[in-house]
């Protein structure tokens, strides 16, 4: 915001309160009410206003208080924001970012736990899900500077799960580029967000048994970094696609299909998916939430089966 006056923040409680997770804490004092706007509780309006501001030359970063509530803005995001460049034959772009806290295992139940990346995956949009503070900063700066709309989903559990040093100043992490979070040679795990860390725990368990697990952090889940996915799949020949979203019709389903399509001749096992359950909602009760979520223990079991195949 210091560098570029066009950048502004808007959303429910992002100003005076600094956001429910204090992500925008202090911005109001530094950049003033005109650039840090508290909006009414109306997500459709937040997205619509952000769209207008973007077309008018601003670089809005709009926050949905939880991804679960982004559905109210579904029409604006997928029908208008995503299609604006196409509709205007490239004349108008929509350089905005929609941020929203996502995901479960934070005891948030029905309205505060959802993974909506697959539902919002629409040509014209990029969807980014960072897996650590360092990654979040570099990816968010890149998203803000991107000339086209980016949905930026931050995992709630990662807000408080661990700390890591984040350099002051600018650095950009390119969008649509996956990263190798952990090198391995026997099995590849494709995941993003919180699951990167759960997969890392499981990989340690497998290492004790002499199985070397590679973890690819997708970072941008739509569109996928096809080269990185296919390269790792071809390298190991055994693939697990891991996600917290409902099992069916997910970003992971797409990654699995891509691997089957382009790495088939290298594969040594069926492409496995492991995700959340196909049930209407993340349950509230702790044991039921555990039951829903892919946990390090469950991931370890799945990886062992794949190693033994």
């Amino acid at each position: 915001m210091e560098r570029d006056e066009r950048v502004m923040v808007m959303g429910e409680d992002v100003g005076k309160k600094g956001g429910v997770f204090l992500v925008t804490d202090g911005l109001r004092n530094r950049f003033g009410e005109a650039r840090v706007i508290d909006t009414p509780l109306a997500e459709s309006s937040i997205a619509g206003v952000a769209l207008g501001l973007a077309i008018a030359g601003k670089r809005p970063v709009a926050e949905m208080q939880f991804t679960d509530f982004a559905h109210m803005a579904f029409n604006s995001i997928t029908n208008e924001i995503a299609k604006y460049r196409y509709r205007s034959d490239g004349d108008w772009s929509v350089p905005l970012v929609v941020r929203a806290p996502m995901g479960g295992h934070a005891h948030g139940a029905l309205y505060h736990s959802q993974s909506i990346e697959a539902r919002f995956a629409t040509p014209g949009l990029k969807i980014v899900i960072p897996s650590s503070p360092y990654e979040a900063k570099g990816l968010l700066l890149a998203a803000i500077r991107d000339p086209d709309p980016v949905l930026f989903f931050e995992h709630k559990r990662l807000y408080r799960m661990f700390k890591e040093p984040v350099p002051k100043g600018e650095y950009l992490i390119p969008l649509q580029k996956a990263r190798t979070f952990r090198e391995g040679k026997d099995i590849s795990v494709f995941c993003y967000g919180l699951m990167v860390h759960y997969a890392a725990e499981a990989a340690k368990n497998l290492e004790a048994e002499g199985v070397s697990v590679e973890i690819i952090d997708l970072r941008t889940v739509y569109p996928l970094d096809r080269e990185a996915i296919v390269a790792s799949a071809r390298k190991t020949g055994k693939c697990l696609v891991l996600y917290e979203d409902n099992f069916s019709v997910s970003v992971g389903s797409e990654a699995a299909a891509l691997i089957a399509d382009e790495a088939w001749r290298w594969l040594d096992a069926p492409v496995k998916r492991f995700g959340g359950l196909d049930v209407p909602s993340m349950p509230y009760a702790v044991p039921m939430e555990e039951f829903f979520m892919p946990t390090p223990d469950k991931i370890t079991r799945v990886l062992k089966e794949l190693a033994a195949y």
Binding site: W264, R265, W266, A269
Partner: peptide, 8 residues
């Protein structure tokens, strides 16, 4: 044999 095995 799996394709990966045949290729290897």
């Amino acid at each position: 044999y799996s394709p990966g095995v045949q290729m290897a």
